[in-house]
Design a protein around this nucleic acid. Structure first.
Length: 422
RNA sequence: GGAGAAAUGGCAGAGUGGUCGAUUGCGGCAGUCUUGAAAACUGUUGAAGGUAACACUUCCGGGGGUUCGAAUCCCUCUUUCUCCGCCA
């Protein structure tokens, strides 16, 4: 959520920058007008309440003095004030509701380095690494390989749950576990504190990181207890710091965590959902940082470089995209996507998204830090996938297929305990 | 799931109807003293809205109510603790 102060004091800039995100910029002027109205009404309510307080204290004194006439007068005056307060308060509530309703619909303002553009095709490729795999024409897509080696059973998942909930078996299951451990060990070595959060969260948490109300339909909602299955570990991990005032010297906070992730993916279809390309449940290791505002873009680059290191070690060809305004997420100010090339499908698959949210999340979370005895200031939050498993598995299987089985990259072998899937 | 107790500032812990945003201790910060540190002493120390700055308003787990007036009384929800039941 954008800060009212920012909109009030930088109206033109906000319009310019939000235009790049194709946001409803007309909301900005409506918000500014509502806010002015709100403050005026708030002031009126406050001074009336101040009057009421004075009267109450006077009432006590009059009663001690047995001043019956005075008591009657105060009661009458107080009643008059209460009526005014009630009227103004309901106006104030209505104004705040309208203000909030508009405010939560405005996405974060993109950083000025974010390229113009509306569609994924307009994202800027800023970095590429690795050779394109040189596979024979007979190379198989991962769903065929998964069946051939008994790694993943998509049909069985249909039976147990529904489409998009595969069952991993044998070396397929072991590979999952190996990747999770590999990612967690690397993140821990890079200074991230490992946490194991709940995978069901309440509404406040969903709101704090921006999934609610914007993406309500993308989450599984457990209605009996009004809880949501997390779409990413970002939600519980970042919400650890909801309503927290950190000391400046505690920054940066670096957390990582493995969780399953659940996404309804309503409206997806076709080749995008084939095999492991898009699932309703998948595994992911997430990295999260809470940063000083002056250092958050430095941290974003550091996180991008960290994820790139993982992909290099997995020997996967990848490219890094700087997302254009139209393709960025609601809450992000700047996002890098990392895509690996999956050799048999011959397509790029997004495996990581690394974003700086600046104060967009922390404003909702009330996540602040304090230098010395200064007033608390909103911190910046960042996160990135490091990494999401399914598409990594897809690319590993496809790119490393040989006549004699599927080769496991050297970095993973200590974790899998085998060199080849056979 | 049943019965009982509790929820106050970073922490501990007072406060049961009136000027209480809240005694006190610890912790934090600043100062005195000291070559420096410790100890001691002095002062200061919650958040939000609002203002040029004050003023002012709100917040004592959440919500609602009683009252001229609520941290204090009532209702309700949530959470924690103790006991019982069930259980990976």
């Amino acid at each position: 959520m954008l800060q009212l102060n920012y909109l009030r004091e930088n109206r033109d800039e906000a319009v310019r920058r939000l235009t790049k995100k194709y946001a409803q910029v007309e909301f900005i002027d409506q918000i500014i007008a509502l806010d002015a109205d709100r403050r005026k009404t708030q002031n009126q309510v406050d001074s009336l309440k101040g009057e009421a307080g004075k009267l109450s204290r006077q009432y006590g004194e009059f009663r001690k003095a047995n001043n019956e006439a005075g008591l009657a007068q105060i009661t009458a005056e107080k009643k008059n004030i209460d009526e005014q307060v009630e009227t103004l308060s309901s106006q104030l509530d209505a104004l705040e509701e309208q203000l909030q309703a508009l405010l939560v619909q405005l996405p974060n303002v993109p950083n000025d380095r974010v390229p113009e553009g509306k569609t994924p095709e307009e994202n800027a490729v800023v970095f590429s690494h690795g050779e394109m795999p040189n596979l024979p024409e007979t190379a198989k897509p991962h769903w065929d390989l998964a069946a051939q080696y008994g790694l993943i059973d998509f049909e069985l998942g249909n039976k147990l749950t529904g489409s998009g909930f595969p069952v991993y078996r044998g070396q397929g299951a072991k590979l999952q576990r190996a990747l999770i451990n590999f990612f967690l060990d690397r993140a821990t070595a890079a200074g991230y504190l490992e946490v194991q959060p709940p995978i069901l969260v309440n509404k406040d948490s969903g709101f704090g990181t921006g999934q609610l109300p914007d993406k309500e339909g993308q989450m599984y909602h457990v209605t009996v207890d009004d809880l949501y299955l997390i779409p990413t570990a970002e939600v519980p991990i970042t919400n650890i710091y909801r309503d927290v005032i950190l000391k400046a010297e505690e920054l940066p906070i670096k957390n990582c965590g493995y969780t399953p992730c659940f996404r309804r993916e309503a409206g997806s279809y076709g080749k995008d959902v084939r095999g492991l390309n898009r699932l309703h449940q998948f595994d992911k290791v997430e990295i999260v940082q809470v940063q000083h505002p002056d250092k958050s873009y430095e941290a974003l680059e550091e996180m991008r470089e960290y994820v790139a290191g993982l992909l290099r070690d997995l020997e996967l060809p990848f490219r890094t995209l700087l997302l254009c305004g139209g393709d960025m997420s609601f809450a992000s100010a700047m996002t890098y996507d990392m895509e690996v090339f999956s050799g048999a499908q011959k397509r790029w698959l997004e495996v990581s998204s690394v974003s700086n949210f600046e104060t967009f999340q922390s404003n909702r979370l009330k996540l602040r830090y304090r230098s010395g005895s200064d007033k608390p200031v909103l911190a910046h939050t960042l996160n990135g996938s490091a990494l999401a498993l399914p598409r990594i598995v897809a690319a590993l299987l496809e790119n490393n297929q040989t006549e004699n089985g599927i080769r496991i990259p050297a970095a993973l072998r200590p974790y899998t305990g085998f060199d080849f899937i056979k």
